[in-house]
């Protein structure tokens, strides 16, 4: 039964949140859409310019570069997802001692602020004094200037991106693994399937709902990468051409060069990109995700 009192309570309880979301989420979305059709004056004010920002972005080398860098980064970080599956599978080995110690260590990068992580890795990647090139040198490999060279910078950032998210994804996969009923494995053992075969025949297919979730989340986060680029690459570095991401460009245009209208257009493009790629993911899921 719907009592009027219940209505009132319902509205009262959601009111603060709804109001806040309206002010800090809904209104900004509308405003950003509007601003993306305007040009900002150097010292304030904006004028309507129609779709000029979008057509400018379409032909802008920096924007196209940033799009390419961002997509490449997302692909590289997604390529790191299997690492998390392997880690989770190993953590899930029955009778493994010290599981929670391992889990803590793998999770450490997740709780550390990206600003600190970026600085640390920037030094590790230093071409002359960094530990990574030193170790590569021991193997007889002459390491590149990872963060100084536009051809390598995005790979260096992606390595850090994978490193700092393995723990988070492994925890999600571990939860997925623990949801797979033991009986499947027992039945497979009876049929004489080895552990590797069980992994490919049982674990991977039954883990696909988690895999799908992780891929979508990882992709959305990767498309919005900013912190690592900002801390690992100097604002004047030539390597920025090979590592400037969409959000970085948004920050540069909006809050360094004060071209807010153009920045708003960049944000709208990003929204479109995320929506399209997520929709594609959801369409593709029917082909490979197994729901029990």
């Amino acid at each position: 039964m719907l009592s009027k009192r219940e209505w009132v309570w319902g509205y009262l309880l959601i009111a603060p949140m709804a109001l806040g979301l309206a002010v800090f989420y809904l209104w900004p979305i509308a405003q950003t859409l509007y601003l993306s059709f305007t040009e900002s004056g150097v010292f304030g004010g904006h004028t309507w310019v129609g779709t000029a920002n979008f057509t400018d972005l379409l032909g802008d080398e920096e924007m196209l570069g940033a799009l390419g860098n961002t997509v490449l980064y997302a692909v590289l970080v997604l390529a790191g997802v299997p690492v998390a599956i392997v880690v989770a599978a190993l953590l899930n080995v029955p009778g493994l001692r010290g599981m929670s110690v391992y889990r803590t260590l793998y999770f450490l990068p997740v709780v550390t602020m990206p600003a600190a992580i970026g600085l640390t890795w920037r030094y590790l990647f230093n071409g002359d004094f960094g530990a990574i090139n030193y170790l590569l040198g021991k193997l007889g490999i002459d390491g590149p200037y990872w963060v100084g060279d536009p051809d390598f910078a995005i790979y260096a950032i992606a390595i850090v991106g994978v490193w700092s998210s393995v723990g988070y994804n492994a925890v999600l996969f571990l939860a997925g693994l623990q949801g797979i009923p033991r009986q499947y494995y027992e039945a497979a053992s009876m049929d004489g399937a080895g552990r590797l075969r069980q992994f490919f025949r049982i674990t991977l297919p039954l883990l696909t709902p988690t895999t799908f979730f992780v891929i979508v989340i990882t992709m959305i986060n990767a498309l919005q990468v900013f912190d690592l680029v900002y801390l690992m690459i100097d604002t004047t570095s030539p390597a920025l051409n090979g590592s400037r991401t969409i959000v970085y460009l948004f920050f540069e245009k909006g809050f360094v060069q004060n071209q807010r209208g153009l920045a708003a257009a960049i944000a709208v493009v990003l929204l479109g990109l995320i929506l399209v790629l997520t929709a594609v993911q959801f369409r593709l899921q029917k082909r490979w995700v197994h729901y029990e």
């Binding site: 800090f24 989420y25 209104w27 900004p28 979305i29 405003q31 950003t32 601003l35 929204l271 929506l275």
Partner: peptide, 10 residues
């Protein structure tokens, strides 16, 4: 679904 960057300028 909306990326945080959309909120920042307003």
């Amino acid at each position: 679904m909306v990326p945080g960057e959309l909120f920042i300028i307003p």
